[in-house]
Design a protein around this nucleic acid. Structure first.
Length: 325
DNA sequence: CACGCCCTCCGCCAAA
DNA sequence: TTTTTGGCGGAGGGCG
């Protein structure tokens, strides 16, 4: 059994796939190694393998899904296009997608690829979006899906969906941000000459908050939300354990198990994310940013940013800041 | 920049 | 017996 590394990405295409629904998102992952040393292993598959003709007439070389039996993937992405509806009627494809989805950490669709995910049963009870022209059709065909027509992309646990082509790029940039850090994703967006946007309707949620929630429901969701609103409080393990009415040891253990991140690191990530947003979007002084995010002093934030992103706060603002005052 | 204190994390074991 | 909880202590690393 072949097992791919943690950051393998598999795209699934079909006849009459929209070429840009494949290549746009694909380019994001391919370019990641240009802005940091993290490389994705990107593959393209179709039901039977071989050349698949896209809606532009350009053929795409693919491997067959059956050849990937037993492989595990980090991210599975279903492209969209005019052929998506026909593809979603092919039970063999649905079975194959279902099977691979079960072996993937993240599952996503671009544009009308959402119909394939939905038909395979992978969107049941989930929030989702598709191309704006097809949101109504998606909603009426799948009552158990919560279609969010205004969203650019959605994520619900490990299930991501995106609207039109460029939304797929946005979604993948957000995935990269989650994987290797926001500064790299921003640098990537810059090199692709596009803006990095946040999913509409849930911009108040931290991306760092939605770590691969391994299994159970969000026992710590409320706590994380509270932390985000109280970044300046003391947030030691003992404090948080107190808040949850648990012993420190047990709290740390359960938190780690459910979020995949230790409490201390989680707090740091939330503080860093808040700091990044302030550095990007405001002209608050460094000291003010430091204070409102709960970092002890300037040096504290500086070292944390160097640790995580290898970029100093000043350099970060210079490169990614949008405030022109 | 360096050093020492202290917190965090985690393995380990015992108790429930 | 198995699983969950809690305490202890050491190693490592961040903070002042």
């Amino acid at each position: 059994m072949t097992s791919y590394s943690a950051k393998s990405v598999l795209f699934v295409v079909f006849p009459d796939v929209k070429l840009l629904d494949l290549t746009g998102p694909m380019q994001v992952f391919a370019d990641t190694q240009h802005v940091c040393d993290h490389a994705y292993d990107v593959r393209v598959a179709s039901l039977d393998g071989g050349d698949v003709v896209s809606d532009t007439g350009l053929p795409i070389a693919t491997v067959s899904l059956s050849a990937l039996r037993g492989c595990e993937f980090d991210t599975l992405i279903i492209s969209g296009g005019s052929g998506a509806l026909a593809a979603s009627a092919d039970q063999r494809l649905l079975d194959a997608v279902w099977s691979i989805a079960g072996r993937s950490r993240r599952i996503a669709s671009v544009c009308t690829g959402a119909f394939i995910l939905a038909q395979a049963g992978l969107l049941a009870g989930r929030r989702a979006v598709t191309h704006w022209q097809h949101c109504d059709a998606l909603q009426s065909a799948f009552q158990d899906v919560t279609v969010e027509p205004d969203a650019i992309f959605t994520r619900d646990d490990g299930i991501w969906t995106s609207a039109g082509v460029t939304a797929g790029i946005d979604m993948c940039l957000e995935m990269v941000a989650e994987d290797v850090g926001r500064p790299f994703a921003l640098a990537l967006a810059r090199s692709l000459v596009c803006y990095m946007v946040r999913p509409g309707g849930q911009s108040q949620f931290s991306t760092s908050l939605q770590w691969q929630s391994q299994s159970q429901s969000g026992q710590f969701d409320a706590l994380n939300a509270w932390i985000m609103d109280n970044l300046t409080s003391r947030l030691s393990v003992d404090d948080l354990a107190d808040k949850m009415a648990m012993s420190p040891r047990n709290f740390a253990r359960l938190y780690r198990k459910q979020t995949g991140v230790s409490p201390g690191k989680a707090v740091e990530r939330l503080r860093l994310e808040a700091a990044c947003q302030l550095l990007e979007g405001t002209n608050l002084s460094l000291t003010e940013v430091v204070r409102s995010c709960g970092f002890g002093d300037d040096e504290n934030l500086r070292r944390a940013m160097i640790r995580s992103f290898n970029v100093s706060p000043g350099e970060y603002r210079r490169r990614f800041g949008t405030s022109r005052f």
